[in-house]
Nucleic acid binder design. Sequence first.
DNA 1: GCGCGTGTTGACAACGTTGTCATATGCCTG
DNA 2: CAGGCATATGACAACGTTGTCAACACGCGC
Lengths: 340, 340
Amino acid sequence: MPATIRDVARLAGCSIKTVSRVVNGEPYVTEETRARVQAAIRAVGYAPNISARRLVQNKSFQICILMYPGLLQPASGILSLIMDIGYEENYDILFQPYFPTHARSKRKLVSLIYEHRIDGFVTTPPCDAEDFVSELLDTFKVPLVQINPFNRPEKTPFVASDDIEGARGMMEHLLGLGHRRIAFLMGPRNMRASFDRLEGYKQALEAHSIPFDPALVRDSEFTFDGGYTAARLLLEGSPRPTAIFAGNDEAALGAIYAARELGLDVPGGLSVCGCDDIAAAGRTWPGLTTIHMPAEELIETAVRLLIQILKGSLPSSNQVFLQSRLVLRGSTAPPAEAST
Amino acid sequence: MPATIRDVARLAGCSIKTVSRVVNGEPYVTEETRARVQAAIRAVGYAPNISARRLVQNKSFQICILMYPGLLQPASGILSLIMDIGYEENYDILFQPYFPTHARSKRKLVSLIYEHRIDGFVTTPPCDAEDFVSELLDTFKVPLVQINPFNRPEKTPFVASDDIEGARGMMEHLLGLGHRRIAFLMGPRNMRASFDRLEGYKQALEAHSIPFDPALVRDSEFTFDGGYTAARLLLEGSPRPTAIFAGNDEAALGAIYAARELGLDVPGGLSVCGCDDIAAAGRTWPGLTTIHMPAEELIETAVRLLIQILKGSLPSSNQVFLQSRLVLRGSTAPPAEAST
DNA sequence: GCGCGTGTTGACAACGTTGTCATATGCCTG
DNA sequence: CAGGCATATGACAACGTTGTCAACACGCGC
């Protein structure tokens, strides 16, 4: 039904190849011809058929972002950003939910590579940690850029934030307020952030000569429920921590919920802080003190890097580090009592 | 690089057409041939090239969900649900952020229709309200299913929830608790839900013979900031409402924030409730009393309906209504003082 | 034995584009 | 003026699939 390149050629009185040249901005077309073709394109309402182009070029012009929806929700800003980049660069960008070890996710990924011939992938934690993913992409030589990958091999391009530094900064904030018994909510074992943030926690303790107490470190799985349960156990135990540093915001919100349920005021009776700066962190009362992860920049950088690689222009740097920053809201304050 | 249908045919000792028949589950292939072809497919690792299939069938096997990211965030459950449906039905499902009146959004939509030849669309509020969208889809005869559309013309298929009924139910809850001065936070004018929920609010007041007071109705644009600002004005005025019924959860969270900022306890000094039951509603303290919108079912139903239409099987019903339900959490309680 | 319907198979065109190569033209150089 | 080179253009194949149609085998009824 829509016009094809042949319709344009007929109207413009030239060959289809010439039309193709005009459409793709190739040289070797006189200005006069170019204008005539462009007029014809407008006249018949022509737009190139992407499927045909994909077929003949054996490319899909699609890149795919694998993400585990439990952890990374594509926020509003990210979605529109991605749309813009894709529009500029003429690439379709697919968000693909990926559940590690989930059979259907695996089959879908295989289909994306095999049948859709996706040109390249971006992985987000913890998708990169599954061997299946890395081996598959490696086998088929599909270009890949990783965001905050678990491992940081020399050759693979990635974009990362410095979680150790970020966590240390947050600890300095808590320690500066006077907290000494600070609990830490750990994340899942298949994400580097879990370990890096714990490392920052430990480094700060050491810098202040506070002994590391393993009993203050609990698993939260980076979920609301995990944070809630861990906080309940911590707060019902004794001695209580005066602050809880949650490895991510979801867990922090769970911890606040648990504290409130026990009648503890936040930050009056307990300080709570998180990591990531998700949308909900600013929508709760008190606002959640957290570390702002540059999620949009991470994704934008990764996508642009991938497209650069796909276009064959070797980027200046394959491994990019972005800074996070502290966001002080209302959920942290000096401890109520002079703690033991 | 990957195997083509010709490689399979050569190995199986048959024509490419026979392979095609096996791949597509068509009849007129003996069991023996079918088995031989399937073995060959596995042997060479064949997967059909989707671009070629799309080209020859002049279909994209893609459907697109237009959404305004400011309001509808694709939550974790929705994303994986969509993935599953797409996988089952062999359709790719694209989430396309769409900003009404935004030039780039318009161009992208045109490109989706013109160049990508998207087979069908699902619209979410308020994208359906923009004339540009409906006219474009209409002009090109692209199949369309709407979710909670602004208008409900006879012919267009849609899936909707009964917002009037839902809002009335919430009002019954508040009135039952003893509230009489209840404010309402209105949404944008390009969404049916704004008007329907207001209508439910009015109907409940009338049923209880409480006069409608326009001063208690404020605009919130269905955003956190809008809800915050509206609530500040309401709460700093006099007489204060004893409850705020926000047209959506974002605005409700803003209202709670405003109340807390003024030192008002929720629900002790003010009851607040919302609509939609977004993820954050259960992650805040106190949990937000709200109306659960069946977002996943709405999208699933719309997508399945669209695919049914695309496959040519006329569905039994073009217009589906789904029920919402009250979710009572901690943000509503009886008014503190016997209100005037 | 013949006609006919049904099951099975394959040859070939078609989809709409881009890549390759040949050709034509004009201009510059020696 | 011959030769060479850059510019401009088009004919045609190719990409990998599905749709169309013809061909053939077989069994059945008459």
